[in-house]
Design a protein around this nucleic acid. Sequence first.
RNA 1: CGCGGGGUAGAGCAGUUGGCAGCUCGGCAGGCCCAUAACCUGCAGGUCGCCGGUUCGAGUCCGGCCCCCGCAA
Length: 305
Amino acid sequence: MNYKEKKIVFFGTPEFSMPTLKKLVDNKYNIIAVVTQSDKKIGRAQTLQETKIKQLAKSYNLEVIHDLNKLANFLVKEKPDLGIVVAYGDFLSEKILKQFKVGCLNLHPSALPKYRGPSPIQTTILNGDKKTSVTIIKLDKDMDHGPIVKQKKVKLEKYETADSLHDKLSIKGAEILIKILPKYLKNNIKVKEQDHSKATFSKILKREDGLINWQQTAEEIERMIRAYYPWPGTYFKTIINNQEKNIKIHSASLSKNFDSEIGKLVNKNGQLIVQTKDKSISINSLQIEGKNIMSAKEYINGYLK
RNA sequence: CGCGGGGUAGAGCAGUUGGCAGCUCGGCAGGCCCAUAACCUGCAGGUCGCCGGUUCGAGUCCGGCCCCCGCAA
């Protein structure tokens, strides 16, 4: 049987999964179903919205499954060869994994065994790493634990945000996966066990993780702003017109030290400066709760008269 | 009807008990200066989101509608 006729089930949910699914379709792999999370209520209107992958799958007329019981029956019936899992968003049980003749491949945006878990991209930037990797592993019964099929290094730009790195890794990951897939399907590739003693973990991010503690160093805060952009965002609380408001910082850079009051936004020669534990940072763009994003200059004009 | 903030000059904002619509920045013109994003002088720029109501008089009070945004998901 031609390797391109082998039955593949794709698992994915958000934007990160899209380049891989696109490439699989472009390269005419035999995708028999796409598994994704169920529709979620989204936005102020609370309307039900399909996941990015569901939208894409539908545009390709692929069968979409989100019910895991249905999936179990489907797998028993179809006897698929391979599962490809890219940011599916849920743990797959061993029972499901066993249904695939050659197992399931997973694309993970970090240099495994470093940063297993749900927020590897953010953690990479938060820790100030200069480089990372995309890693393809064969899934086993533990989270991000399986043997490495392929790993490729990726350099970070100096001002890399989680957003830009996310896009970069999703595309790079898709390319690598497509490249190794023929070999893998022909059983022509060696896998390598992870060095489990070196495993580290990234945590699930919550909104509160983005709350700035100005007692941290300027470098830590600047990295946090890039790591948590655009989600969960980096913010602090302040009083505007006698109301407590959150201010989200979209972009900032390290600045020379101005030695002003810690955590207070001040105008220094047209720059919007805030003092941290050690040095100052210069805010480039920010957003007050309820307002549109604005530049530092606009904030100074409107709020720091 | 999930909760909340907002719509005033090109941008960001203020506008008190209803009584000549303002501030900072930007724009234009001129000046100063070796020079400037600095400084000085002057000018232009508004359907106060839309519709209706109350009033001698509404940015402001009342009713309805449209739009933007934060939280939540």
